[in-house]
Amino acid sequence: AVPFGARYRIVDFVLSNLVNSGIHATFVLTQYKAQSLLEHLQRAWVGQMGRDVFITPVPAQMQTGHSWYRGNADAIFQNLNLIADYRPSLVIVFGADHIYKMDIRQMISFHKGRKSRCTVACLPVPASESESFGIIEVDDEWRVTGFEEKPKKPREIPGRPGYALASMGNYLFDPDLLIDVLSLDADTDASEHDFGKSIFPKLFQMERIFAYDFHNNRIPGESKKGSIYWRDVGTIDSYYEANMDLRRVRPALNLYNWDWPIQTASFKDPPAKFVFDHPDMRGMAVQSIVGSGTIVAGGMITSSVVGRNVRVETGATIEDSILMDNVVVGAGTTIRSAILDKNVIVEDGAVIGGAEHELRGGEVRSELGVVVVPKAPESPESLARDH
């Protein structure tokens, strides 16, 4: 449920990919601290229009009576009753913490064409970057022959010297195979109950498993170059960089493609507004994305992503930063290379970000030096805007 791109939540990308691909029967498995996610799903996605058209959140319920979810594989194992009740011909298991666009129909076509029992989506990456990924090994037909977790010297892709195949953590399963492997894993005490660590490394040794090359995926309305974008935003720096990607004149992630819309919640916000036009007091935003309802009253925003209903006062300077919803930036403030979570109020004249910034009140600094200011409590005004 983390905000992204001044308008969206990260979960919107996988759900939009599913809906745009004609897949309308989706269960969203949630675990701890899920209230914000549940509220977003309720506002933006949840609906029940028939047996085959729904997006339904499923909170952790201890269905097996032993424990809460012990990993992503155990999360699905504890909800196998949903698969049994629905009786699907194919089960799609996708994570919700990545930013990308994907026509899943093309992966399904590959899966069926290879008569695969399980298919994993993969992304070719330079072999020098393999230590950041789980690496899949394949033969000339892209049948999976091996798996290594973050190897220093990975086996390269056949016919593509210098490149290795990174797992995206997105899977297609024949239902009976998924039920069998999850049931076996649940009875293994030493397992981490994780698809990448526990399930997949053993599965390719027993079954006909293939890797799908994400580079072959094409999004309607986009050029070949524009279609290939995937970011794991599981760290502060990767999240920051993915947002900063949107500042480009022609970003690799095209949010303006009406043939493949990214859907999200709708709010009754007014338009963004930029006021004052004097040499020493001019409301401006350059090379930036600014959300609805935001008022820039004589401040300057450069190369940043600013969310909904933000207020930027006179003389404030914001550079290379992410401001989430309902932030108030005081007059004369300077913010550089920072992430301000929701509802933060910055006092007049404050300086946030940079090597000289002294951390306080729960703030953190990432490996790349990005300062993160934590979420502040809701005010009556922000509550009214959000609800």
Rank of each mutant, 00 (worst) to 15 (best):
F54D: 03
G349D: 13
G71Q: 04
R9H: 07
Q263L: 12
M281T: 14
Q42H: 10
G50H: 12
T26I: 01
A96Q: 04
F133K: 11
Q205E: 12
F200G: 13
A164I: 13
V329G: 06
S191V: 10
L37V: 11
V328Y: 07
S21T: 05
N81E: 10
P374C: 01
V181F: 04
D237Y: 12
Y240I: 10
I301Y: 03
R247E: 06
R155I: 15
E129C: 13
I83E: 10
I301S: 00
L178Y: 07
N309V: 01
T30F: 09
D194K: 08
Q31W: 05
Y8T: 08
V144L: 12
V351A: 12
I92N: 00
L359W: 02
S366H: 07
E131S: 15
V344P: 13
E378F: 04
E131C: 13
E363S: 07
S183W: 01
F195R: 08
R7K: 15
L383K: 10
I236L: 15
I10H: 05
H98L: 00
G361L: 06
V91L: 05
V275D: 13
V233C: 11
G134P: 14
I262T: 02
N79E: 15
N81C: 11
I76T: 03
L38S: 03
L178G: 06
V249S: 05
S109M: 12
I289G: 01
D174W: 13
K342C: 14
D180L: 15
T317C: 02
G162Q: 09
A272K: 10
L165V: 07
Y32H: 05
Q78Y: 15
I76A: 04
G50E: 12
K225I: 05
V181Y: 03
S379D: 02
S130R: 11
V144P: 15
F133R: 05
L29I: 08
R114V: 04
D237K: 08
R248Q: 10
F133H: 13
Y86V: 02
T314D: 07
G293L: 10
G299A: 07
A350Q: 09
A384I: 10
V233R: 09
E378I: 00
S89V: 08
A350Y: 05
H98I: 00
G307Y: 08
I83A: 08
Q63P: 08
F110P: 04
V296F: 10
L123F: 04
T145E: 05
M300I: 03
A384P: 04
V328F: 12
R308K: 11
E319N: 11
A252I: 03
S132Y: 15
R160W: 08
V91I: 04
P88W: 02
G162N: 11
